[in-house]
Design a protein around this nucleic acid. Structure first.
Length: 235
DNA sequence: ACTACCATCGAAAGTTAACT
DNA sequence: AGTTAACTTTCGATGGTAGT
């Protein structure tokens, strides 16, 4: 790696992401031949085919995908190191921050966050995106800045931090038979469930908890938002 | 002896054009 | 769409010269 430099690593990161010399050149603000030469240097340096020709295009190899996480980690560390001396001035910040969160979080915190932003970074904008709007790669690829939701493993390049704990509430009709006796995990799992999931998932933390008790539940219906549940229960 | 300035050289990285 | 060749530009290293 003695011939590596940050420009090369940055170019390699983009090349692996877009899998195209032309697109990478556009992202880097340079020409395709220049990127082609960078790619040739990277191939020589790594002694490995990181991007291979597939017809008229390029395809990232498994080795390239393995390298990418490490490359991004290195670039982030270098950025932190090189900019440590620079005083951060939020007042002059001109950029949009995209936060992926559910309606509950947006309703509870959007106003407060806006007030802070207006006070400290008046030229910046804040966008709340719905949970279903981006895939899991969005955070890793920088399409969103913050993902607020149930924690899940996303690799070493993504930093996780617990900011609050939430709890689940179950709804049922007034005359539902579950209320005729004490509610236990067994009776809870015995009845069919409606799952509320913007991502269309039928299983989640509830199912993991039931599984630990040797129980499973049947989820015949999935809806996106809580009001839909109320409508179904009343029907 | 030290410093500042200028010219020269070579490596690296850029471009266009042509080819595969 | 990617690669290569030829050429150009940029930049850092080096050495010579002049002034203090």
């Amino acid at each position: 790696m003695s011939k590596a430099d940050l420009n090369l690593l940055h170019a390699l990161d983009i090349l692996i992401e877009v899998q195209s010399v032309t697109l990478a050149a556009e992202r880097l603000g340079t020409s395709p031949p220049s990127v082609s030469r960078l790619l040739a240097r990277a191939r020589d340096m790594l002694d490995n085919q990181i991007l291979v020709r597939a017809g008229r295009g390029l395809v990232a190899t498994e080795r390239a995908k393995e390298l990418q996480a490490g490359i991004r980690h290195l670039l982030a560390e270098a950025d932190t190191l090189l900019n440590a001396h620079a005083a951060f001035d939020p007042g002059g910040l001109e950029r949009r921050f995209t936060i992926r969160a559910n309606d509950g979080f947006t309703g509870a915190f959007a106003s407060g966050l806006y007030n802070i932003l207006a006070d400290q970074a008046p030229r910046a904008t804040l966008r709340f995106a719905q949970e279903h709007e981006f895939d899991d790669e969005a955070l890793r690829e920088g399409r969103i800045d913050l993902d607020i939701g149930a924690s899940r493993a996303m690799g070493p390049e993504v930093r996780l931090q617990t900011i609050f704990r939430d709890h689940h509430i179950a709804l049922a009709r007034d005359d539902h038979p579950i209320f005729s006796r004490d509610i236990s995990p067994e009776t809870f799992a015995a009845f069919p469930h409606i799952s509320v999931s913007r991502r269309g998932r039928s299983a989640g933390p509830v199912d993991e908890a039931l599984q630990k008790l040797g129980l499973t539940r049947h989820v015949p219906l999935i809806v996106e938002v809580v009001p839909s549940v109320r409508t179904v229960l009343r029907a």
